[in-house]
């Protein structure tokens, strides 16, 4: 009884403390759950994605020098395109690629060949715009794509993988200090 009386007399303090705790630690974990761009790889995927599960799966093979791999759906972009534009990779279906093409980095045929191997010569293996290669095929229409348990593909669509023109991990493509985006990209592409 005395205990309850004491608690009620100071209830406003306890409520305030709870509020402060939630706000403070949520803010701390927002920072813990992030890393500088140089230390993380980010891929945006068009369509439904189990972001956390895919991120956990991708982090099982972490490239050297990378602390974090994040997979996001395009729906993740709520307050602005900042993180979308500075991502490293995009996985986009063919019917949506043209609308997002401003962010894509052009690829040389040699780079495309190094990613796809012999299949780079197949029809529909490369996504081009105005004769310039931008994307390589990750999933053919009617076929299965990478990480099918975490990504909700449209079965009728062909999906292409694109590099961001602002990636800091795309090696010579963007004059970046490292090329770890290629290591991540190969996990989304058919085995050569």
């Amino acid at each position: 009884m005395k205990f309850l009386k004491n608690v009620v007399s100071q209830l406003h303090v306890y409520v305030l403390w709870a509020l402060i705790s939630v706000i403070f630690w949520a803010w701390i974990f927002t920072m813990v759950n992030d890393a500088p761009q140089e230390k993380k790889l980010v891929i945006f995927i068009y369509g439904p994605v189990q972001e956390k599960d895919l991120s956990v799966e991708l982090e099982k093979e972490m490239p050297e020098g990378i602390r974090m791999i994040r997979a996001h759906s395009f729906d993740y972009v709520v307050f602005g395109n900042g993180e979308l534009e500075t991502a490293d990779l995009y996985l986009v279906p063919e019917n949506e690629a043209d609308g997002q093409s401003k962010m894509f980095c052009p690829l040389t045929p040699e780079v495309a060949a190094s990613l796809l191997g012999a299949s780079a010569a197949e029809e529909g293996a490369l996504w081009k715009k105005d004769g310039v290669i931008y994307g390589v095929r990750a999933k053919a229409a009617g076929g299965s794509g990478p990480f099918p348990e975490q990504i909700g593909y449209d079965p009728a669509q062909t999906y292409y993988l694109f590099f961001s023109s602002l990636s800091v991990h795309a090696g010579d493509l963007t004059q970046a200090p490292d090329s770890t985006a290629f290591e991540l990209a190969r996990r989304f592409l058919p085995a050569r």
């Binding site: 100071q10 303090v13 306890y14 403390w17 709870a18 705790s21 939630v22 403070f24 630690w25 949520a26 701390i28 974990f29 813990v32 759950n33 956390k52 991120s55 956990v56 982090e59 974090m68 791999i69």
Partner: peptide
């Protein structure tokens, strides 16, 4: 904070918030 990773981030965050609230109430 130190043990948090991508897989357990929500759990660690919830644990930290819960510990902070309960521990703080006890101290107060």
């Amino acid at each position: 904070c130190l043990l948090a990773n991508t897989a357990n981030m929500s759990l660690m965050e919830g644990t930290a918030i819960g510990a902070s609230i309960l521990g703080g109430w006890f101290v107060l």
